[in-house]
Amino acid sequence: MAAAAVGILATASVPALAADNLVDEVRIGLYDHNSSLFATRHETSNPDINGEVLFKSPDWLSWAFAPRPAIGANINTGGGTSIAYAGLAWTFDLTPALFIEGSFGGAIHNGETSGPTNGRSRINYGCRFMFHENASVGYRLDEQSSLMVTVDHMSNASACTPNPGLTGIGVRYGFKF
């Protein structure tokens, strides 16, 4: 419930931030939670709703191929683990319409961190703070709109045990200001 309130407040402030030239793009999507395409599904099969805000790349990051700072969340619709994340996203154009993107950063989740995995409801991730990365292949419909296929992953990189990770795959729509 708190994550939904934060999402609503963040979304409400996006137009003002875009007008101030801070926000570059907003995205919304739907992911197959803990997708069985990559491993045995250990959580709910209910989908995740993804929301993400990408900010304009600051000048001081130009040396690193101008990544855009990003914040987002994957909210599970069936009581499984939800995450909030922040990081940097690098977008590379293959053609004027086709692009690839990768991001890397950190995440915090509301899943289990100790004890046995609770059936099919939540995985024991070992620690609260995790690494987060995703990769997308996208197509620009026009100058403002794009569609992406995205693989999204969260893991603790063996910083604590266990380290099962959480991977989702889905589609997203982006609107660039």
Rank of each mutant, 00 (worst) to 15 (best):
G168F: 05
S35L: 05
S45C: 01
G29A: 05
R140K: 14
I49R: 00
F55M: 08
D93G: 07
G174D: 02
L54W: 04
L9D: 14
A89L: 08
G51V: 09
D24S: 02
N118R: 12
A64H: 02
V171P: 01
R122F: 08
G79R: 06
P69V: 00
F129K: 08
L98V: 13
G106W: 05
N76H: 12
A12H: 15
F131E: 06
G79E: 07
G78M: 00
P58H: 04
R128S: 15
Y31R: 09
D142P: 04
G111D: 07
I71N: 05
G79D: 07
F99L: 04
K56E: 14
N124C: 05
P58C: 02
G138K: 00
S62Y: 03
T150E: 05
T150L: 01
S146R: 04
S57M: 00
F104E: 14
R41N: 15
Y173G: 08
V137T: 06
Y85Q: 01
R122E: 14
A10R: 07
N163V: 11
P58A: 08
Y139K: 04
N34R: 02
G105E: 09
A107E: 10
E101G: 06
F177N: 12
T117I: 09
S136Y: 00
A4E: 09
P15E: 10
G78Y: 06
G111T: 07
I123V: 11
E112F: 09
H132S: 15
N134T: 08
I100E: 03
I108C: 05
A10V: 12
S36C: 06
L61F: 12
S57E: 02
P116L: 09
G80M: 03
G106I: 15
V137N: 01
H109M: 07
S103I: 03
R172I: 06
D32F: 10
T161M: 11
A4K: 05
Y125M: 15
G138W: 01
D24N: 09
E143N: 14
F38N: 08
N34S: 15
T150S: 07
A159R: 10
G51A: 11
A64M: 07
N50W: 00
L147D: 01
H109K: 10
T77L: 11
Y31M: 15
